[in-house]
Design a binder for these strands. Sequence first.
RNA 1: UGACCCAUGGUGUAACGGUAGCACUACAGAUUUUGGUUCUGUCUGUUAAGGUUCGAAUCCUUAUGGGUCAACCA
Length: 553
Amino acid sequence: MSEEKSLNFIEEIIENDLNSGKYSSIVTRFPPEPNGYLHIGHASSICLNFGLTKKYPGYTNLRFDDTNPTTEETEYVESIKEDIRWMGFEWKHELYASDYFQQLYDFAVLLIKKGLAYVDDSTSEAIAAMKGTPTEPGKDSPFRNRSVEENLDLFQRMKNGEFPDGSRTLRAKIDMAHINMLMRDPILYRIKHAHHHRTGDAWCIYPMYDFAHGQSDSIENITHSICTLEFVPHRELYDWLIAQLEIYPSHQYEFARRNINYTVTSKRKLLQLVNEGHVTGWDDPRMPTISGLRRRGFTPESIRDFCDRIGVAKRENMVDVGLLEFCVREHLNKVAQRRMVVFDPLKVVITNYTAAEELLPTENNPEDPNGGTRMVPFSAEIYIEQDDFMENPPKKYFRLAPGQMVRLKSAYIIRCEEVVKDADGKLIELRCTYIPESKSGSDTSGINVKGTLHWVSAKHAVSAEVRLYDRLFRVEDPTDEEGDFKEYLNPESLQVVNRVYAEPDLLNADLNSRYQFLRKGYFCLDKDSTTEHLVFNRTVTLKDAWAKEVKKA
RNA sequence: UGACCCAUGGUGUAACGGUAGCACUACAGAUUUUGGUUCUGUCUGUUAAGGUUCGAAUCCUUAUGGGUCAACCA
């Protein structure tokens, strides 16, 4: 216990509550609305809420905030559950705000009986007009002073389906001049003759967020109800309802949502990208959704690490996506199997290599002592990257050039003897010689070369498709720019390389495999892959010091 | 022209009246059969002005800047 990690402000509150004896254990909840897929911003909330009850005694519920039947679907429920589990967390109870519809209705009746709620026949527009503005008070609704009996009767008839959608609402009776707009007789219930994904057609009135969330927290005895900053003004109403209803006092705490640059994390905007075909779906590997990141090859460990590093606070923020990339590189470096794949082939003929072929051992992961080795076929005709040869190289170029030597990873040192071109002067192949004594593991040549290249034996190579991803947007904050955010999509966010040349071991890849294609980046198999047609996604590139050097020049 | 929330390097986050630290980024170097990894070093910060105090990033005041609030969404 010598080195204490500093606490975030929510952990401080919890430790105080635990130390003061206010609670002996805590209960948190993760409350998604099932109207979209979870994204990286939710990951922060998931790590926070579930992480808290891993650290302190207590548990976390999963509660779907399903009070709006017109936007919610079972498909989303399933994806949310899958994503949370994939992130490595398990909830204590799987709950739904809709489980409490009867209880919530009873709460509303109680409020009416206490003279604290009334049925309003005003139209949506009229209510908005009477609401006032942040600087001017609102006006009382003409229906505000109905008798308890009339309200009770009307509310029951609302429930019974006697009135059409939008014709009436149930409102709390607080104060139309309140400085907090949310306290100006907020709507508690509205009529929606809509089919609910769980309760079916049992109800035609549905509670609003403010009349469902806090009450659900209370019913579940949530001790620390954590949400984002935009709900700060709701807290006053949250507390008011709990006080008037005299139910278990849950407490709401707010933290700043995490924003990440070069992407958007708004379900509405993400839905647009999906619906308008800018991406292939919620799990498009370019999407900041958890399912997209998963398909892209991110690991739960790396996402949890990221959430841990960006922390929890109350100030506005814009996290650099570079940190997310750092986290996934750090994890993948430790666990990814190394393989060799040539993207843009240049044929190399080794003129003095007389054997038909041989199998060369190579380590699966130099970072993992228990990673083992595999055999890679070598022969007189191999492919290297076009990039790894230059006829007229600059000073610090360590790769192949006429007369220069380079090591082939896990194989031999070769020297470029001859450059073969076609009639148009286009580079066709390189003719090289190899140094037999330079074989990896038993090198007696005494030759030291600066560069080591990845390669693949031409006749053993298997072909594959590779999908290279870049940031979805060209600008850091698409939401902050002029015009529609979609104008700032990065047209080069996806680059497909139809045919790359891979070492044959890659035929064994499965969806759980994580690879580092040497000197290329981290890759994983895509779900579109078949035995006949391998497809790999690039999760993230490797850091590239040479690219930087080239840029400088 | 109201209320509320917030303000620490380029980014994120610590320091709870007593030496402004950590991570990412950037840069420089060492190592390296991945121009990867690893290691070492360097740069850059308390929004401003007053006040309280022996001492202020921290407490107070004012200003400035940013965010939120006027959906029958959550």
